[in-house]
Structures are given as C-alpha cells and as structure tokens.
Design a protein around this nucleic acid. Structure first.
Lengths: 226, 226
DNA sequence: CCGCGGTATATTGTATACAGAATACGGAAA
DNA sequence: TTTCCGTATTCTGTATACAATATACCGCGG
C-alpha cells in the first residue's frame, strides 16, 4: 500500500514556537495590553515551561516590535500610538496597491466570491457593533488580494504590518460610522472583476485613508472649522 | 560644570545583542554564505560566549528570514534566489516611492548634496569595479530619501528589505554595465530639487527596474530574440 | 517635609547540565 | 554491490543554577 502523502508537518513540538504563538496572540487580541510589563518567569509559569523558550519567543517578538526590551530592564508590550498609525497606514496602502496590481490578472471568481462574503460578514458585524468580527472580516477581504498576488515576500511584510494595524484598530476603535467601507469594498470588488487596476487602486487607497481618518481624532470637521 | 549631553547609550553590554550584530554582519557581507549550516555551539565558541545568547540571536535572525530553522534540525543561512529578488525589488520600489512623496517637501540642500556625493562615489566605484563600494554608495543615496521621509516605520521596514537586497546584489553581481544608474540618480536628484514628485518617482522606479534586470539572467536580449 | 544614600530583594543575562531527536556509520541480508 | 536496519554519536531543545544589574524599601541628613 502506498504511503499516504502528508502535505503539512504533523504538529508543533517546540515550546519556543508555542510560546511565540501564544504571546503573539495575547498581544494582538489585547489580553496583554500595550505597556504591560512582562516578567519572563511569570510568563514561563503561565505557559507551563521554563524561561528559556519564553526568552527566545520574546527575542522574536522584540524583532517585530511587538514588545520593547532593553538590557537588564523589564520587557514591555510595545505601546500603540496614533503617530504609528499615521506612519503605517500609507505603507500598507502602498503595498496593497502593489499586491492588487499583481493579483489583478490572477483573481479567480472564487476569490471574488470570498471577498463578497467577507464584505457581507463585515456589514453584519458593523450592524451588530462587533469590532472584533468586523476586523476579522476586513482582514479576510484584504487578505484575498494579498494571497492572489502570489508574492510571498509581500505577504510576509504585509502580515507584519497588518498585525500592527490590528492592534491599532483595537486600541482606537470608536463609535464612528464605518459603513462607507462597505461601498469602498464593493467598488473594489467590481473593479477587480472588470480588471480595472486604476479604479480598483483608487478604491483601495480611499479605503485606507478612511480607516486612518476614523481613528484620528476630529478627522475632517476640525479642518473645516478654522 | 554642566553634565555633557550624551545622545547615545554608552556601549553594548549584552552578549545576545553583540552576537546578533556580528552574525547579521557576517551574513550580509557573505562571510557566512547562503545555505551554510550554523551549529550554535560552534558559533558560541567563535564569539567567545555560551550557546544561550547565540540562540537568542538566531531566533531574531530567523524572524527576519536571514536564517532558516526547523525544530531539531540544523539552522542554515537562508538561501538567496532570483525569485526572491523579483518579489522584493517591486516592494522596495513601491515603498521608496512613498518615502519620496513624504520626503519631497523636506529635502534640504544638504541632503541633496549628500546624494550627489554618493552618486559620485558610485561612479568612482563602478569605474574601479568595486562592487562593495558601489553597493554602499547606492545604499547611501537611496537612504537619504528614506531618512528625509521622517517615517520611522517606513525606515524600519525598508531597512529589513534593503538588507535582503544587499545579499541579493552581492550574490548576483555580474559584469553588467551599471552606469545607467548614475543618470537615473542624477535625474532623481534634479527632480527632487525641482520638487517634481511624478518625474522623481519615475526615475526611482526605473532605477529599481534596471537593478532587477541587471541581475536577472538574459534580461532584454532574450525577449528580443524569440 | 523632602531628598539622598545604602542595603535588601527581585529580575534579568549567561552558563551549564541533561534529555531527546536527528544524523552518521557500520554490518547484515538480498 | 546495494539496500536496509540498528547502533553510536552529534546536535538541538529545555531546564536550572549562578552572577550581575536594577528596583524597592528604609533610615539618615538637610
């Protein structure tokens, strides 16, 4: 009998990777709040392991700026600021525009359907004021473009940036009406279907600009009343 | 007497950071070649420390894809491929275009002078066929734009990408005539001086496209002879 | 009352010891 | 000879021990 093919590795047997995954998840979902001090012994105890794998996980998290650390000084969950948002959002917009250009000829009907489904989930989440579900749906929608780009490096870099975006959104999510995002997405999808790169990129860029405006205090009103 | 201001921290007292810096430098300058196996005990001995700080350094390097590692399997210096180059160069071009847009109103005459000086160094290095000096000069020139953008996140992300670019260039540097880069740069500088964003971005994009073509085997001739 | 200095404690950074997995080697069978 | 399997060795992953630094607390002097 032929040996069954097994595409993926069986499982994670590495404590340091488990620690990394857990800590990362805790930071992204807010379980570990920005600024929170992290004593590695406490983390080790919480994760049921010794300090060694925890410290290796923290080294990786420090590398991607999810925690800040200084020699002989306590490690902290890195802060989340609006200044950071103003820097990151344009970068994500630029890279997703590149992803879109690469993805345009490769977008399948199935991918477009998944985007429509994600937009529907987003609408539902916004109606229910469920920030978490909304963020997940939005991420899934944009993720389709990134995945379709076929550019692994782009995916990796955007993954890092998107996880910062996720923390920012969680930190600054307000009562703003985010329904305009739905029409941005709808236009984006139809432009993708029509293979209209220019207009699709405009819709995408507008969407990210809106996202930034929604979390920035007094977005447009202030500028209109000098 | 007033206490003298000291902008930078005194020194590095952290073995893990020292290990990170050294290993990173060795990988970037080719001392540790792509694919080379890394036994952490050997590295520890070479660096005069124990395995613990070395392993933390390797965890960080793995996070930025300079080394590849799998559980219970030897760590290797990550390979450098043309496929990676084709993915990364457009990303760098897109992000530098963003940097340029941000930097345009902030470019000082001094910064432009430094760019001209870097371009002169590049010319000299190309004449002398000194790949290393050429890469350094090119990096310095582009770095001026990135620095002037004032966007720290952009700087950090580009830093990571540029270090991959550096490995790629080192690996695939050939006998190609790279002098066209000099005129790209000259036009870029004069457009910056004239605050002409559109043309500056075109020059910059063209420069990166050329860079990719130079390392890609049979760049244009093959396409012209079907 | 506040600031300063000194000691005690807590916590980090590094080294080392040990267990387990993977590789290398060598011998037996086809 | 080649292939397969079992053993030995090497290397990795984790735990723990120890040293050094930073923080916290408390008493002293201004």
């Amino acid at each position: 009998m032929p040996v069954p093919e097994r595409a993926e590795a069986v499982e994670r047997v590495c404590l340091r990777d488990a620690a990394y995954d857990r800590l990362r998840a805790w930071i992204l979902d807010g379980t570990l709040a920005p600024g929170e001090p992290l004593r590695d012994e406490a983390l080790a105890e919480a994760l049921g392991m010794s300090r060694t794998p925890v410290r290796e996980a923290l080294a990786r998290l420090a590398e991607e700026d999810l925690v800040v650390t200084a020699p002989n000084r306590r490690t902290h969950v890195s802060p989340v600021t609006l200044a950071q948002a103003r820097e990151i959002y344009p970068m994500v917009a630029a890279l997703e525009a590149l992803a879109l250009a690469l993805a345009l000829p490769r977008m399948t009907a199935e991918a477009l359907d998944r985007m429509r489904a994600a937009n529907a989930r987003l609408a539902e989440a916004l109606r229910a004021c469920d920030a978490r579900a909304a963020l997940d749906a939005d991420r899934a929608l944009h993720g389709e473009i990134i995945a379709a780009s076929g550019n692994r490096e782009l995916q990796a870099t955007l993954e890092q940036l998107e996880c910062k975006v996720q923390r920012i959104e969680r930190a600054f999510w307000g009562a703003t009406d985010r329904t305009p995002s739905l029409s941005d997405h709808a236009e984006l999808i139809s432009c993708l279907e029509a293979r209209d790169a220019k207009r699709a990129q405009r819709a995408l860029t507008r969407n990210w600009e809106r996202g930034l405006a929604w979390i920035t205090p007094k977005p447009t009103r202030d500028e209109a009343t000098p």
